[in-house]
Design a protein around this nucleic acid. Structure first.
Lengths: 250, 250
DNA sequence: AAGTGGTCTAGACCACCCC
DNA sequence: GGGTGGTCTAGACCACTTA
């Protein structure tokens, strides 16, 4: 289960990740049921042959996933909601991945595929110089041949020079970027509702004035550097976003 | 800056939180500028008089906030985007808190304030028995007297029995719950766009058929137990949601 | 080869919960 | 008072980067 880094070249899985997988496995196999108390930390350490610091890193990770919770002076408990949950909200998924998860077939109609110099606004958002060649890809995204959203993504051509020559009707942009080593880890997003203008309505096959869910995203890499920006206009009645807000400490 | 837990009764701030505040302070004061390298960990430990484990917990926290990033064998660097960012997306904020952050004055028109037995659907979502007394509060939320959203929140009356007798025109529901020890830490949310029905349109003072941003939330406590559910319908042109999606490992 | 982050350990003290 | 989680320390080894 979950060999998160085993694929990558360099490193073996850290001990604490193995501990995470082990506990998660026991929950999924039903050895640990919702509401049950875990063995005390010091005991688990012995069983797993790891130190308490390492164990606690694993437990902390499982808290973030919503699988465990701790109670001072009492012990660790399996969450009630932990059982059926295999899906995890608030993850950055590509349209292709979302489709796959729902068992639907994605494809695209490419409306634009061009290279322009970046405007001042675009350059500022992406942290590049104005005039830098910018690749723009506009697609109608469909699931099982039903238009779901209109996606306009822009990124510096320098990141993946061969982008301009590819056909994105079937290809996943995320997968293409990943192959070139461009790996977003976060996307800061704003979401609003608006009315469909004529052009968008035509491409999404809805009436003008119908509600749209508009999401603007800026994707960042592990160093918080901007990678690309995109805006997606979803047909209101055909798409539902899921996310999870967490309470900041205090 | 940021005395996160000093308000609460029990504990003093952990050391690593103080270290977080200290580093963040240096960045905000401009002592550390975007792109700059921090002193090596072992050196910082000496300066701050804390152990490396503790320091690293603080640095890890700042990575999550997008303020720092680490580079193996090279050092810690201040993110380029760290400078102007004081706001942090993806936090669960009450309407009152959001208003305060934006410097606006919130208030409410209470449309309903009642107690009913929970339906089967409601009971299932909240993890309680059907028929349990359920407190329902429906409010038009206004900022500077402009209607922004229509909020319908329901929670088991047992959590805070005196809820039925309070006036929520000026009062914050979140603050009231917090006083009673009800502290949500997460809210799983779905977001969609739809058209305003007649009743909603009237209360939000928009035309029927105008776009709405509809958010359904289930708030959970630290043990992942459901606390309350709410649905908020925002006037499309008057509200913009912010969130941040993160890429799941692998 | 030296510097740096990434991981891990063993042991300690505290505050809380429950008997 | 005994059990439990929450925090902290000092020291160690490894892998990567830079020169």
């Amino acid at each position: 289960m979950s060999d998160s880094s085993a694929v990558l070249p360099g490193y073996p899985d850290p001990l604490w990740i193995q501990a995470v997988a082990l506990v998660r496995g026991e929950i999924e196999r039903g050895v640990l049921k919702p509401g049950m108390r875990l063995a005390p930390e010091r005991e688990l350490c012995q069983q797993l042959g790891i130190s308490r610091v390492t164990l606690r890193r694993a437990l902390g990770h499982l808290v973030e996933e919503g699988v465990l919770s701790a109670s001072r002076g009492r012990g660790w408990y399996v969450s009630q909601t932990a059982q059926p949950k295999k899906e995890w909200p608030n993850t950055l998924e590509s349209f292709t991945e979302t489709a796959a998860r729902m068992g639907l077939t994605p494809h695209s109609r490419v409306l634009q595929n061009r290279i322009d110099p970046a405007t001042i606004d675009q350059a500022e958002r992406l942290g590049i110089a104005p005039g830098t060649p910018l690749f723009s890809l506009e697609r109608v995204r469909l699931l099982n041949d039903v238009p779901i959203g209109l996606d306009l993504t822009r990124l510096p051509l320098g990141l993946v020079p061969e982008l301009g020559e590819l056909d994105f009707t079937e290809r996943s942009l995320y997968a293409t970027l990943a192959e070139a080593g461009v790996e977003p880890v976060r996307a800061d997003s704003t979401i609003e509702a608006t009315k469909a203008d004529d052009r968008t309505a035509r491409h999404l096959e809805v009436a003008p004035g119908e509600p749209l869910l508009v999401m603007h995203q800026l994707a960042l890499d592990a160093d918080q550097e901007p990678l690309f920006m995109s805006s997606i206009r979803y047909a209101g009645e055909r798409y539902r976003l899921r996310t999870s807000f967490s309470r900041a400490p205090q």
